[in-house]
Amino acid sequence: MKVMIRKTATGHSAYVAKKDLEELIVEMENPALWGGKVTLANGWQLELPAMAADTPLPITVEARKL
């Protein structure tokens, strides 16, 4: 699914347009965010693609819901 990742004042957030859902990312498998699992505030887990740590945000990526 397409997910937009952006930086907020409190960390990172994910927006899933198909579900009209925006949630804070509360847990990251990798400190650089990319190439691992993230957990959203509502409990969803997404697998993000591997990208460079300095990838500019906001960005829309293809993520997989676990």
Rank of each mutant, 00 (worst) to 15 (best):
H12R: 07
K2F: 13
P49R: 06
A9S: 12
K7E: 07
K18F: 15
T10A: 12
G36R: 02
Y15K: 09
L24F: 10
V16P: 00
Q45I: 15
K18L: 14
P58C: 06
K18C: 15
T55E: 02
A63Y: 06
G36L: 06
E27P: 00
A63C: 11
L46K: 00
M51P: 01
Y15R: 09
R64L: 12
V38D: 01
L40Q: 01
A32T: 14
K65F: 15
T8R: 08
R64P: 04
D20P: 05
G43T: 00
A41T: 06
A32M: 13
T39K: 10
G36M: 04
K19N: 15
N42L: 04
E47M: 14
K65G: 09
M4S: 10
T8I: 09
K18Y: 15
Q45L: 12
K18P: 10
M1S: 04
L48P: 00
E29Y: 06
L66W: 10
V26G: 01
A17V: 15
M51H: 03
T10I: 12
L40I: 02
A63M: 05
W34V: 04
S13G: 06
T55I: 07
R6F: 13
G43K: 02
A52W: 05
K65P: 11
K37F: 11
L46T: 00
T8H: 09
S13N: 06
Q45P: 00
M4L: 12
A9H: 10
V26F: 04
M28G: 03
P49M: 05
E62F: 15
V3C: 05
V16L: 14
K18S: 15
V3S: 00
Q45R: 12
V61P: 00
P31Y: 07
W34A: 02
G43M: 03
A14Y: 11
I5R: 00
T10L: 13
E47S: 10
T55M: 07
V26D: 01
G11N: 03
K2P: 09
P31W: 08
D54L: 07
A52D: 13
M1I: 14
V26L: 08
M1G: 02
Q45C: 12
M1T: 08
D54Q: 07
A32P: 04
K7F: 07
I5F: 03
D20G: 14
N30Q: 10
R6L: 11
T60P: 02
S13D: 04
V61Y: 00
G36I: 04
V16K: 01
W34Y: 01
L48C: 00
M4K: 08
M28V: 08
K37R: 13
A41I: 04
G35H: 02
V26C: 09
V3Q: 00
A14T: 05
Y15N: 05
H12D: 02
G36E: 03
A32D: 14
K37W: 15
A14G: 04
L21N: 07
E27R: 10
E47D: 09
I5G: 00
M51L: 12
A53Y: 11
L24S: 11
H12E: 02
T8E: 06
A63F: 06
N42D: 02
A32K: 13
E62G: 07
A53L: 10
E27F: 13
E62D: 11
P49G: 06
E47K: 10
M4A: 07
L24T: 12
A63K: 01
G35Y: 04
G11M: 03
V16Y: 14
L33G: 05
N30M: 09
G11W: 03
V26A: 05
A9R: 11
M28W: 14
L66F: 11
V61D: 00
V3H: 00
L66A: 09
G11L: 06
G36P: 01
R64W: 12
L33K: 02
A14Q: 02
P56R: 10
G11F: 05
M51Q: 05
P58I: 06
K65T: 12
L46R: 00
G11T: 03
L66M: 11
L66D: 05
M1A: 05
L46W: 02
R6E: 03
M28Q: 13
T60A: 07
E29G: 05
K37Y: 12
S13H: 09
A41W: 04
L21P: 01
G36K: 03
A17D: 09
E23C: 14
E29T: 09
A9C: 09
K7Y: 09
V26R: 05
D20L: 09
P49V: 03
A14K: 01
S13P: 02
P49C: 06
E22V: 09
I25S: 02
V61I: 10
T10P: 04
A41M: 09
D20V: 07
V16M: 14
I25L: 05
M51G: 02
M28F: 11
P49N: 00
K7C: 08
A41D: 02
E27Y: 14
T8D: 07
T39R: 10
N30C: 11
K65W: 15
S13W: 15
T55K: 04
T60C: 12
G35M: 03
A63V: 13
K19A: 15
I25T: 01
L66E: 04
P31C: 09
E23S: 15
T8A: 08
K37G: 06
M28L: 07
W34E: 01
P56A: 11
A9G: 12
N30F: 12
G11S: 05
M28C: 11
V16H: 05
I5E: 00
L33N: 04
A14M: 13
A63R: 00
L48E: 01
I59D: 02
K7L: 10
K37M: 13
L33C: 07
A53W: 13
M28D: 01
A50G: 08
V61W: 01
Q45Y: 08
G35C: 05
S13V: 14
L57M: 08
R64T: 12
L21F: 14
P49A: 03
E23P: 01
L48S: 00
E22H: 11
G43Q: 04
E23R: 06
R64E: 07
E22G: 06
M4R: 12
R6Q: 10
V3R: 01
D20H: 13
H12Y: 15
A17H: 14
V16S: 06
G35N: 06
E22W: 13
A32I: 10
I25C: 02
D54W: 07
P31V: 10
G36D: 01
L24G: 08
L40V: 00
P31Q: 10
H12F: 15
P58Q: 03
G43I: 03
A17M: 14
M51K: 06
A41F: 05
V3D: 00
R6N: 09
A32V: 09
K19G: 14
A50R: 11
N30W: 08
E23F: 15
I59W: 07
T55F: 04
K7W: 09
P56Y: 07
S13R: 08
I5Y: 01
G11I: 02
D20W: 08
M4I: 14
A53M: 10
A32W: 15
D54P: 04
P56M: 11
V26Y: 04
R6I: 10
V61T: 05
A63I: 08
V38F: 04
L57V: 04
T10W: 13
K19W: 15
